[in-house]
Amino acid sequence: MVTLAVEHHPLAHSVSFDTDSLIVSLVDGRTLSVPLAWFPTLSSATASQLRDWEILGDGEGIHWPQLDEDLSINGLLLGNQGRR
Rank of each mutant, 00 (worst) to 15 (best):
S25V: 04
L56V: 15
A45F: 00
L11N: 05
S72D: 12
S43V: 08
N74C: 08
E54W: 07
V2K: 15
G75R: 02
L11G: 04
V15C: 00
R51T: 10
G82A: 06
R51H: 10
D20S: 14
S48H: 10
T3C: 09
L77S: 07
N80Q: 11
I23K: 09
E69T: 01
L78D: 11
S44E: 08
E60G: 15
S21D: 13
N74T: 11
Q66L: 14
L56N: 13
S33M: 10
V15M: 03
D52V: 04
E7F: 13
T19G: 12
T3E: 12
D58F: 14
G61M: 08
L76D: 02
A5C: 10
S14R: 05
S44D: 07
I62T: 00
W53Y: 15
S16W: 03
L56Q: 12
D52P: 02
S16K: 10
G57C: 11
M1N: 11
M1F: 12
P35S: 13
A37M: 06
E69R: 02
P40R: 01
S72L: 12
V6W: 11
G82H: 04
V2M: 12
E60D: 13
S33R: 15
V24K: 01
R83T: 07
S72P: 06
A45H: 01
Q81F: 04
W38Y: 14
V15I: 08
V34Y: 03
G59Y: 05
V15G: 01
S48W: 08
A37H: 03
G79S: 09
S44W: 03
E60F: 09
V34K: 07
V27I: 12
T3H: 12
L42A: 06
V34E: 06
G29C: 08
L56A: 15
D28S: 03
H13S: 13
S16I: 06
Q49S: 12
W53V: 02
W38M: 04
A37D: 06
G82I: 03
L36G: 07
S25D: 07
P10C: 07
V34I: 13
D28R: 06
F39E: 00
D70T: 13
S21H: 15
T3K: 14
D52N: 15
T46S: 15
R51S: 13
L78H: 11
Q81E: 14
D58L: 15
I62Y: 01
I23H: 02
V27E: 09
S44F: 02
G79W: 08
S21Q: 14
V24Q: 03
L4E: 12
L56F: 10
L50H: 08
E54K: 15
R51N: 15
S25T: 05
